[in-house]
Design a protein around this nucleic acid. Structure first.
Ligand SMILES: [Mn+2]
Ligand SMILES: [Mn+2]
Ligand SMILES: [Mn+2]
Ligand SMILES: [Mn+2]
Lengths: 227, 227
DNA sequence: TCATGAATTTAACCTACCTTAAATATGGTC
DNA sequence: GACCATATTTAAGGTAGGTTAAATTCATGA
């Protein structure tokens, strides 16, 4: 099913449900969806019933919701749109990486497949958005590193490369940029035992001073060990 | 009032009501709005009641509808968005002039003021869209030539310059382009008495063969006499 | 096993936008 | 001035996406 036969609300639900499990997290619950969309759990239940009736999610009452194959295909198409748009806003329109998410969140429901194909070509088929999130290609294929983990979950010490910085909170993005923590950067991490709540791990970006990474930033950052 | 506090439906109504009088035509009726949006007259009446309650139109039952000052300001902001987007799609994304209208019709409801300001700067503050329609500036000012008329209404003969080709019908745009009838072009027109219905005036583009312009194209084209 | 608190669903109600069918106002015409 | 065709409005009803409050289910700890 083509995602633009769906309402903007349906498109957003599929995208959020899919994104939840992108890095291996368990499926999303009614309450979490309500929080994410700033709406009531009652409204989420009703909306999930409609998506279930359309064959886009497999809903079991009282359980976290999962996508059907059709729902997943629509979701991936929406994720592709969202991330290509974010990339275009940064590369072609001079947006900062903490400004693009909200704009893309609206544009993704309005652009045509033609528009997406044009910016994909102009950007020369990028494989990651400004935050490091992978961009599925036109055939809905993309590469996810197996050994990604949250910086906040790193214990002990070692050398890592930054993969992704979550675009959910603009403040996290601004802080990360100030600390030099952008996708591709190499880090020496020394995280003690398991990180006291609040304070994050001690991190040294190569060629910079050591800094303590705030918990919120470490929580939103995915890294992979360098072999 | 800022137009993005309004629903897409409200935004489109204001834009269409405003556009109707842009070149001096009388205000638009319920029936014409219904036809334009492909909906029922009953639905138009209900929607106009809501716009009236919001102070955006001054509705007198059974009369053509007119905008309030607040409604006109929103309308102009939407027209500006629409025409800047059309221009950007042609200039930056390689769209053809008969493809941009539908895409802009959706994007205009999704873009932020920031987005509009960026493309306005990149395009160096254009004053006309690809069809020749004037683009209001950020202060909602723009220039309309006084002596514009429909090519279909020209009688006798004379020299004219093409101002605008209507973007309502992509087929008209393709035909106009094939005939060389694009904004800025000079024409020698010989239109006989008042044009038999269907067949349009005889037109000779400077440096080209004389051609008979189809009625639908002559109807959608605004020209001004060259002094 | 069973009581309890939290999460979830159901119920009742709302607005915006859409439909079709029926009623009504309007602008000529005789 | 009454009549008629047409445009418009009103009426009744539907769906998507919201709300709050009440009922229900689930997981869990005593
Ligand atoms: Mn969105
Ligand atoms: Mn992103
Ligand atoms: Mn247009
Ligand atoms: Mn529109």
């Amino acid at each position: 099913m083509n995602p633009d036969e769906l309402s903007p609300v349906a498109q957003d639900y599929l995208k959020v449900i899919w994104s939840r499990t992108e890095w291996g997290a368990p499926p999303i619950t009614t309450g979490e969806l309500a929080q994410r969309f700033g709406t009531s759990a009652a409204n989420v239940t009703e909306t999930l019933k409609r998506l279930d009736a359309q064959g886009l999610v497999a809903r079991i009452p009282y359980k976290p919701v999962e996508l059907t194959e059709a729902g997943a295909q629509c979701a991936i198409a929406m994720v592709r749109r969202h991330r290509l748009l974010e990339t275009y806003l940064v590369e072609a329109l001079g947006y900062d990486w903490d400004e693009v998410h909200d704009e893309a969140e609206r544009l993704e429901h309005a652009v045509s497949d033609t528009f997406i194909a044009r910016i994909d070509a102009i950007l020369e088929h990028p494989t990651a958005d400004p935050h490091g999130d992978p961009i599925p290609d036109a055939d809905h294929r993309w590469a996810h590193p197996e050994d990604a983990r949250r910086l906040a979950s790193v214990t002990g010490s070692g050398r890592f490369r930054v993969l992704v910085v979550s675009d959910a909170d603009p403040e996290v993005l601004r802080t990360a940029r100030e600390l030099g923590l952008v996708p591709g950067v190499e880090l020496d991490v020394d995280a003690g035992e398991s990180g006291a709540a609040g304070a994050g791990p001690l991190v040294r970006v190569l060629g910079r001073e050591g800094v303590e990474v705030p918990g919120s930033v470490a929580e939103g950052m995915l890294v992979r060990p360098i072999v």
